[in-house]
């Protein structure tokens, strides 16, 4: 007999894949309903009808939309995201470097932000309603409230101009040592951490406070345990599901939503890449970026659900 959790996880993963398929259809349909087509944008407004017709036939644009969608999806599944219209480069190759840069930036921010947010959440619960709680909430709420481009410029002004501790432009390239890379991305990482910290900390605090009402917390208090031990050992394990969900949402933001920060710091990541090609109306690149972003977003949320399922002892150890 298979463990019921296997069935649950299989279902969840299948659902994630289905969702991704739906997202790919939406992305494809979205780029189709834009006015003008690829042939037009390659040849420009002054192209002759004959030239347009030839190019359309060559690119397969006369095929029905469904056929083109299936071709595109089939190729994408094999790692072929097509070629960029503007420079004829293979998108998968061009994007590979960009994506790894974005993931590097996101990973640096996550490694700092996630543990800090959870720890601050625990401290806020420990001193609920007292000054440490108010201070933590106040500071994180205000950094969340400031738009990230402004945070970016403030950080630049203070840490790159006033005190020349870090470079204001986050340029990284192959061949840099890890330390050099870390120094280069310090400012965008700082901004990203400040942006996501508040949300994660507030949710951790709320989820744990919710659990703190439970009778088993009283049991722990009556065992004479220290307050922080009670919060970390007895409350946190029962707040995993909501905390993981909000952590994953923020991780997804770190990958998908970094566009503004990458532009501010001129960082060679996915955001920059997408913005450049949107401006040039390079539809295959926009589609490919959309697909990758959707995959990251859905994948991380799926991971959150999987962790939440695994963290539930009722599902892990059925009767």
């Amino acid at each position: 007999m298979t463990h019921p959790i296997v069935k649950l996880l299989t279902q969840r993963i299948a659902l994630g894949l289905l969702l991704l398929l739906a997202a790919s259809a939406l992305i494809f349909a979205g780029t189709q309903i834009l006015p003008g087509d690829v042939a037009q944008s390659i040849l420009g407004q002054s192209a002759t009808p004959e030239a347009l017709a030839n190019l359309r036939a060559e690119l397969g644009l006369n095929e029905p939309a469904l056929t083109r969608y299936l071709h595109w999806l089939g190729a994408a599944l094999q790692g072929d995201l097509g070629t960029a219209l503007t420079n004829g480069q293979d998108i998968a190759t061009a994007m590979g470097q960009r994506l790894s840069n974005t993931l590097f930036l996101a990973a640096c921010a996550a490694v700092i932000a996630v543990p800090t947010a959870i720890l601050l959440g625990l401290i806020a619960v420990r001193y609920e309603g007292r000054w440490p709680d108010k201070l933590i909430s106040g500071v994180t709420l205000s950094t969340v409230s400031v738009p990230e481009f402004l945070l970016g410029y403030i950080a630049m002004f203070l840490l790159a101009v006033k005190v020349t501790a870090f470079p204001s432009v986050a340029t990284i390239y192959a061949g840099m040592s890890l330390l050099e890379k870390l120094q280069a991305v310090a400012l965008p990482v700082l901004v990203l951490v400040l942006v996501v910290l508040g949300h994660m900390m507030r949710m951790t605090r709320a989820a744990i406070l919710n659990v703190m009402q439970s009778a088993y917390i009283e049991t722990a208090e009556l065992k004479g345990l220290r307050p922080f031990v009670i919060i970390a050992k007895h409350a946190l394990p029962n707040a995993i599901a909501p905390v993981v969900n909000v952590v994953m949402l923020n991780l997804a933001y770190l990958v998908v939503g970094v566009v503004v920060v990458e532009v501010v710091f001129i960082y060679p990541g996915m955001g920059q890449y997408l913005v450049d090609h949107v401006a040039k109306r390079d539809v295959p690149v926009v589609q490919a970026c959309g697909l990758v972003f959707a995959a990251v977003y859905i994948g991380l949320n799926m991971l959150a659900d999987v962790i939440a399922i695994l963290a539930n002892p009722r599902l892990r150890h059925p009767k």
Partner: peptide, 25 residues
């Protein structure tokens, strides 16, 4: 001082053990 006493000199059995046990442990 109270923490040193609770769970050592005096212990407690609650009405609803189902709620008083931590479900995650």
């Amino acid at each position: 001082g109270l923490r040193a006493l609770r769970g050592k000199e005096v212990t407690y059995v609650a009405q609803s053990a189902a709620a008083a046990f931590n479900p995650a442990k």
